[in-house]
Design a protein around this nucleic acid. Sequence first.
DNA 1: CATGAATGAGGGTTCATTCAT
DNA 2: GATGAATGAACCCTCATTCAT
Lengths: 190, 190, 190, 190
Amino acid sequence: MDTVNKQLTPKQRILKTVDRLFYQQGYLATGINQIIAEAQVAKASFYQHFSSKESLVLEYIAIHNAEFLNHEKQVEKKFSEPKAKILALFDDLTDFAQRTEYRGCPFLNLTAEFSQPESKPRQLIAQCKTEFRIYIEQLVSKAIPGKNNSQSSIATAIYLLYESALLEIRVHHNLWPIEASKFAVNQLLS
Amino acid sequence: MDTVNKQLTPKQRILKTVDRLFYQQGYLATGINQIIAEAQVAKASFYQHFSSKESLVLEYIAIHNAEFLNHEKQVEKKFSEPKAKILALFDDLTDFAQRTEYRGCPFLNLTAEFSQPESKPRQLIAQCKTEFRIYIEQLVSKAIPGKNNSQSSIATAIYLLYESALLEIRVHHNLWPIEASKFAVNQLLS
Amino acid sequence: MDTVNKQLTPKQRILKTVDRLFYQQGYLATGINQIIAEAQVAKASFYQHFSSKESLVLEYIAIHNAEFLNHEKQVEKKFSEPKAKILALFDDLTDFAQRTEYRGCPFLNLTAEFSQPESKPRQLIAQCKTEFRIYIEQLVSKAIPGKNNSQSSIATAIYLLYESALLEIRVHHNLWPIEASKFAVNQLLS
Amino acid sequence: MDTVNKQLTPKQRILKTVDRLFYQQGYLATGINQIIAEAQVAKASFYQHFSSKESLVLEYIAIHNAEFLNHEKQVEKKFSEPKAKILALFDDLTDFAQRTEYRGCPFLNLTAEFSQPESKPRQLIAQCKTEFRIYIEQLVSKAIPGKNNSQSSIATAIYLLYESALLEIRVHHNLWPIEASKFAVNQLLS
DNA sequence: CATGAATGAGGGTTCATTCAT
DNA sequence: GATGAATGAACCCTCATTCAT
């Protein structure tokens, strides 16, 4: 297959492989055999680095969350005005979603594959999403410094609109949800 | 198992069984063997009524969509004022979500399990969601008769807020997303 | 599907359908479901006319044998000289085998699918082949009236060469076996 | 079942088992479940060594072909005169065919079970048969060194007569085809 | 005479994980 | 630290046949 760089360590090769496979095929549809075949790693080596498939997905989630939050901060930096920072998140999403291989939010896709709310992946993803919501709250608090009472409500609503954009791009395989949610965000911030 | 009423026809027993299993466990995690065991139907009988597991889920989706739209219309009827009809959708959601077995929107859960956007279940669910969006548009057009230009944008935003409520109730295993989306809907409609 | 003429009786439709399917796909690979679907006959109707799949194949063999022997006699009639009559069988085979859908001898294909020599299909096919061998013996007895001792041996050898032509056309997916066997037949008859 | 020696490796046990089952029952009539039960191997172990049932039969064919060609060369060695070497093939066949478990040529039986000429088993078997035909050609070229023109034609005819002997032993469940083909071979070589 | 629903047994294949080396 | 063989359970689906209607 030669789908991964053999100079990476086995663990890195595995993580790089599932980065692609979990996102393109989903968690349940991606088997251990496919992972080790494409990562060019022995089966026993896999279990030396990850105690189970679930522990792999947990690491995958954690890595993605760090990358995501970091990316958002990079995007934010480009603008000085608080409101512009918020809207930039939606514009950045447009860029992302236009890629042909775009398949929605990896976290939202994953969370739907675990039926138990108490499962570790579900809990971890909920944490990540909460982190993101708090991040938006901070942006909002700067954008509308006076209206202290409704700040939090507006921030949560913006978070929900961002989430629904992520979701509905995938549902409808179309970009209109971004514009629609951006419209509502503008209304809420004015 | 005796989990279903034997007086129903095998096809009815199957549909009744997956109504529960697909929602509680998901599509991929629910195997044909479990379905036929709990429906008390022979394997070959299953395939007499459904050409494949996919065709079963398509029927399951169609049935649920009809029931959902009908239910929404029943809810709407209870109110005379247009804006109240819209907000009633969210209040009704609160009732639903308070049930212990609530696991989010069956359609959104399902659509995440199919990686191919062109797959029939994904396309059918997108259709159902579009139907629902149009339904909301009709409600909104009555609620804000004057503002013709932004009617459609507001309706779409309300649809997105409803969707994100459905989604985030599941993500966070909590009801706060309903209040947050309702708050934004009120803002948009005022 | 509309693959058969509905004006035929159900039994005729079944026989016409398996005529195609048994030859193109083989006996084991052709399921009852496919037969009744393409013959447009109800499953219970099938079992009203044929007590089992085996009894169907027996009837199929009998019909084909009658048609085959009749066809050979038609071919033979075109020639007056005994030796020419024999060689005509091979030339006729060339015509048949050039059809794209040619897949070898239906009887030889079938007999390989039944592992038990005592099975009825195997026994019936052996009978058919014996009938054909005797037919060739009669042709040979006219072609070499003098050499009474070796007549039978030569006839059997010609039968074997015809059979191997049938077989090897299929094995090698090529027509050269006909010419090779014809060459040997000429040697034996000179 | 205890039908195989547990000291062999699983792969060896599988090959030993199908050596018997494919020959006695045929390819289609032999299921994976029976193979693994009699080989005393877990199902997943089977698929570790063979990617599919088809790949197993390909290996089975290759092994048998090597054994067959080797055996023929052993038989040939026993005679010094070229013509005797050829006739020895037929006498050796008589020995083989007298065994009670004799069921004809494994390759010819198998090839009839695959309807597609382009299928790998069919192609591999055609190759094996070609190899054997060339082997006979070499023997014939030594037996009739002078008649260069007809050497190839005679060799091919002898190949066909050997094949039809193999075939018709099975068809008629009787040994007379060997004598008949041997008679013709003698005629062609004299 | 004709029907379609229902069946038990089996088809080939893949799952996540463990083990001895 | 790395390996590949081995596993039991489960995957979705099809088989030829029988039954009540």
